[in-house]
Design a protein around this nucleic acid. Structure first.
Lengths: 136, 136
DNA sequence: ATGGCTGCAAAGTATTTGCAACACG
DNA sequence: CGTGTTGCAAATACTTTGCAGCCAT
């Protein structure tokens, strides 16, 4: 089901801004976006879309499990399409390319963290970073 | 070797602000600080120390491997004494208490990340979050 | 004495919020 | 129509920077 239908189903209003954002997310070919980058893309389609609306829309899409967000090493936010194959990512410190880690890797990491710390509901809010194959 | 001597050795100037910050880091009993919390402690000793100086001093201490910094889930920075026993931490979403993960846990995580992604020099800002034993 | 550091103020970056007007259902 | 949503502007939170004067060496 496409993102707009998902909004409809949940009785959120399908506004122009939301259509534009959903379209970019579904069709741009990218899998991750900063709010600002997404805003720039949105402006090419509708010049009146505000950055605040981008943030609010991303927040909404996160609530209904279409996107998730994480933080770049520097601290600012980056949004990902939720992908059944991967929920953790590693970014290249040099070229910025992002690699999607396997779910099994994520699961194993969480198990290690859990047995060491005894914490529950563990999450990692940050992208891992390193140097990718091409840049080393 | 204490932090001030470390500065001296590297020919950085031992100023009052730096002495105050080093003293707090070495003697407060805490292992992690936000810039703001450290600033408040510093003001109790010298009322003229500026937040900007705290940031600059932390940056300097990071350069010479005395502290390292990470980000809270919300995005703002948190500074840790570099500790041979632990370089990764998990913060409780509820009470804010921080647990230091074993180095072996960190090492195992890095191995998992490395074999999945083939990236080198991998880092996380290594602040995970979850719910601690007391809060669950 | 000289240039590394400082406090201060201002700017910068990322994100959130208040509000009146608008437009979706 | 009624209210959920928007654009705009301002506020917020955190961090960095420019600069003139100070002080550690």
């Amino acid at each position: 089901m496409d993102f707009v239908s998902e909004l409809q189903k949940r009785e959120y209003r399908v506004t122009n801004s939301r259509k534009v954002v959903c379209n970019i997310l579904e069709n741009s070919g990218h899998e991750h976006f900063t709010a600002d980058a997404l805003h720039k893309l949105a402006l090419e389609i509708d010049q009146n879309i505000d950055l605040a609306t981008i943030y609010r829309t991303l927040e909404l899409l996160e609530e209904i499990d279409i996107v998730e967000h994480s933080h770049l090493p520097h601290g600012s936010g980056i949004y990902f399409l939720k992908n059944l194959q991967s929920s953790a990512h590693i970014i290249c410190d040099i070229c910025g390319s992002i690699f999607d880690l396997k779910n099994s890797t994520t699961k194993n990491i969480l198990d290690l963290l859990k047995s060491d710390s005894q914490y529950k509901d563990i999450r990692n809010h940050f992208l891992y970073s390193g140097v990718c194959k091409n840049c080393k």
